[in-house]
Computed example of a mutant assay.
Amino acid sequence: MTDQKVLLVDGMALLFRGYFANSYGGYIRKTKAGLPTNAVFGFVKYLLDACKTFNPTHIVCCWDLGSKTFRTDKFEGYKGNRPDAPAELIPQFDLVKEVVTGLNIPNISFPGYEADDCIGTLSKQLSAHMDVLVLTGDHDMLQLVDERVKVIIMKKGPSNYAVYDSEKLLEEKQLTAKQFIDLKGLIGDTSDNYPGVKGIGEKTATKLLIEYLSIDGILENLHQLPKSVKTKIEADLEMLHLCRELATISCDAPVTCLPDECLWQPDQQKIFALFEELEFNSLVKDVSRFIAVS
């Protein structure tokens, strides 16, 4: 058998990407019965392409469950700027999980936790047994990179990936995975709607982390900082600590998945039947060459 490696899939990242990539000019792919399927179609295409590209022996798909998490308990505005999901996407939330089950891939989630936390937790559990690949479009996941964990960022266009290990992260971002948490604590995250330290941008934050290694190191050396930077940090000290907490992916969420439970063993005939039911005809004729063989 080839070397074992598990693909941990950020389900919502693929689903939303699939929706917007397959809604050109307002056209929404639907079955003859009127069920919207454009997001699920895109999701499957992205997933199968990743299987073809990275040849995982195991796969898990992780999901967000809703807007209320332990982070919204800490900061009410967390992700408060997110627009409502498009109406045609809503029925596809349940449908995509049915499709994932049909592909013999486990769906993992837990109330109060985000998909990021499930992925972080499973990356720690499964890296004890095999290499881990995290498939996402979310740069927050870069904090999970370690000796046996690589993060695959999906970029625009088919089969276009940026694969980060520790060396690539340091080379491109000038930071370690752990420092990436502190970066978000300093600069915040507009997509997740937490502010960080007002007036501190990525360039300044990166420079500070390179010199002082961490937020704690920066705070221990506040007296050495330029007055303007020192003033900004002192004015937002409480928010800085809160944003670092919000940015930190939990790696002890109450989820588990054993290697035997996520072995990638697709049933081609089952998949053919599933795709025919969803009227994914172009995928039916191509699926056999996409499926990775254990």
Score class of each variant (00 low, 15 high):
L278D: 08
S288A: 13
H58M: 06
L122G: 14
P266M: 12
K173D: 15
F16R: 05
P111I: 11
L240T: 10
T101N: 12
P56G: 00
G188Q: 01
I181V: 14
N38Q: 06
L183D: 01
V6G: 08
R148G: 06
I181S: 03
G217V: 08
G11R: 08
E245F: 07
D146N: 15
C243P: 00
N193R: 02
V9L: 05
A205G: 09
E171V: 07
M154W: 09
N160L: 04
G34A: 11
I108K: 10
V145Q: 03
V197P: 07
Q179A: 12
P195A: 14
L169T: 13
D189L: 01
I90N: 04
I210E: 15
L246D: 01
L15G: 12
A292H: 09
S23Y: 05
H58A: 08
V163L: 07
G196Y: 08
R29I: 09
D10T: 10
T53I: 00
R29L: 15
R17I: 10
E276A: 13
G26A: 07
L209C: 10
D64V: 02
A273C: 07
L222H: 01
R148N: 15
V60E: 11
V132D: 02
K285V: 12
G18P: 00
A273I: 09
K156M: 12
L144F: 06
L283G: 04
N281V: 05
N81Y: 03
E277I: 05
I108L: 11
E261W: 02
T69C: 06
S228E: 14
S228D: 14
I210R: 11
D49E: 15
L237D: 03
S282T: 10
P106Y: 12
F272N: 09
I187E: 02
R244F: 05
C51A: 11
L219Q: 05
V132K: 00
G196M: 12
M154L: 15
F70N: 04
S228C: 04
F280W: 06
I200H: 10
C118K: 12
K203E: 14
G66F: 06
F272Y: 11
H223W: 03
K270Q: 15
K30Y: 07
A205T: 07
F275K: 03
I108Y: 05
V100Y: 06
K97F: 09
Y27G: 02
P226T: 06
L246A: 03
S109I: 08
A253M: 09
Q125G: 13
E98W: 02
L126D: 11
V151S: 10
P259Q: 08
M154S: 14
L7K: 02
N160P: 02
F290V: 05
K30E: 14
E277P: 00
P91K: 01
C118V: 14
S23K: 10
W63K: 00
P36W: 15
L95A: 10
P266N: 08
K285S: 13
A21M: 11
G11D: 11
K184R: 10
W63P: 00
D146C: 09
L246M: 01
K30H: 10
L213T: 14
G201Q: 08
V255Y: 13
N107D: 13
D192A: 04
R289N: 12
Q174N: 15
C257V: 15
L278F: 06
C257F: 09
C51S: 07
T256M: 15
A177V: 00
